[in-house]
C-alpha cells in the first residue's frame, strides 16, 4: 500500500492550523480579558448562601450541582447511555479461546490490604464533596477502583442484577429529589431543605444528597463498563 502522491489536503490542513495558532496568540496574551466582570465572580458571591445561594463552601460543587444542575443530569445520562452501549456490544460475545494469564503474585496477595483504603477514600471524598475538593464523580471512580482491583487480581466478580438495580435506583432518586422541589414551591433542582450551619458536614440542603446519588450511580456504571470490557467467559 504505497502512496503514489502526497495528499495536498494535508498541507492545507497544516497551513490552516498554523494560521489559526498565530492568530490566537494575542487574544490569550491580552489583559483585557481579566478586566471584565466575569460570571464566576457573581456565582462566587452567591455561593455562601446569603441571598438564595447554595450555602456551601466549595464553589465548583455549587456550580456543578446547583446552578448548572441540569448539565449534571445530562452528563449522568450520557454515562448511562455509554455503559448500556458497551454492554450491548460486548455482552453477547462468546469466549474466545485465549490463554488465561495468571495475575501477578503481588496483586493477588496485597489486595485484601489495599481494599478498605480504596473504599474509605472514595466514601470520604463523596461525603465531603461540598466542603473540600472532590465529589460524586471522583469519589465514585475511586470507590469503583476497589472492584477493578478485584477484577485485576483474577477474581470473578459476578455481574449480578443488584448492580444494575442500584444504578437505576440511584438515578431515579436523583430525579425524584430534584422533582420534589416543584412540590415544595421552588423550581426543579431548587433548594427546599434547611441550609444548616455553614462549613459543617450536615449543611447545604439537597446538594450533598444529590452528589451522593451521583457518586453511587457513577461508581456502579464504571464497574459495569470495565466488567464488560474484561469479561471473556463470564456468562452467568
Amino acid at each position: 500500500m504505497s502512496r503514489k502522491f502526497i495528499n495536498p489536503l494535508k498541507f492545507i490542513w497544516a497551513i490552516a492550523l498554523i494560521l489559526i495558532f498565530v492568530n490566537l496568540i494575542p487574544v490569550f496574551l491580552s489583559t483585557d480579558l481579566k478586566a471584565e466582570e466575569r460570571v464566576g465572580d457573581v456565582l462566587l458571591s452567591m455561593t455562601p448562601g446569603n441571598d438564595g445561594g447554595a450555602g456551601i463552601p466549595n464553589g465548583v460543587t455549587a456550580v456543578v450541582v446547583y446552578y448548572r444542575g441540569l448539565d449534571t443530569l445530562g452528563e449522568v445520562s450520557v454515562l448511562f447511555l455509554v455503559s448500556t452501549a458497551v454492554g450491548l456490544f460486548f455482552g453477547r460475545e462468546k469466549s474466545e479461546t485465549k490463554s488465561e494469564t495468571k495475575p501477578n503474585e503481588i496483586v493477588s496477595h496485597s489486595k485484601t490490604l489495599v481494599l478498605p483504603h480504596f473504599m474509605l477514600t472514595g466514601l470520604y471524598i463523596i461525603f465531603h464533596g461540598h466542603l473540600s475538593p472532590g465529589g460524586g464523580f471522583q469519589g465514585g471512580v475511586m470507590a469503583a477502583g476497589m472492584v477493578l482491583l478485584l477484577l485485576l487480581a483474577g477474581d470473578r466478580v459476578k455481574q449480578t442484577k443488584a448492580l444494575h438495580f442500584i444504578e437505576g435506583f440511584a438515578g431515579s432518586l436523583y430525579i425524584i429529589v430534584a422533582t420534589l422541589g416543584l412540590y415544595f414551591g421552588v423550581s426543579f433542582l431548587g433548594q427546599y431543605l434547611p441550609l444548616g450551619e455553614f462549613n459543617t458536614l450536615l449543611s447545604g440542603g439537597i446538594l450533598p444528597v444529590i452528589y451522593i446519588f451521583v457518586g453511587i450511580k457513577v461508581g456502579t456504571e464504571i464497574i459495569g463498563l470495565y466488567q464488560n470490557f474484561q469479561n471473556k467467559e463470564a456468562e452467568e
Partner: peptide
C-alpha cells in the same frame, strides 16, 4: 483541585 482529582481518577 477538583479538576486535578477528576483527572487523576478518571
Amino acid at each position: 483541585p477538583d479538576v486535578a482529582l477528576t483527572e487523576a481518577a478518571v
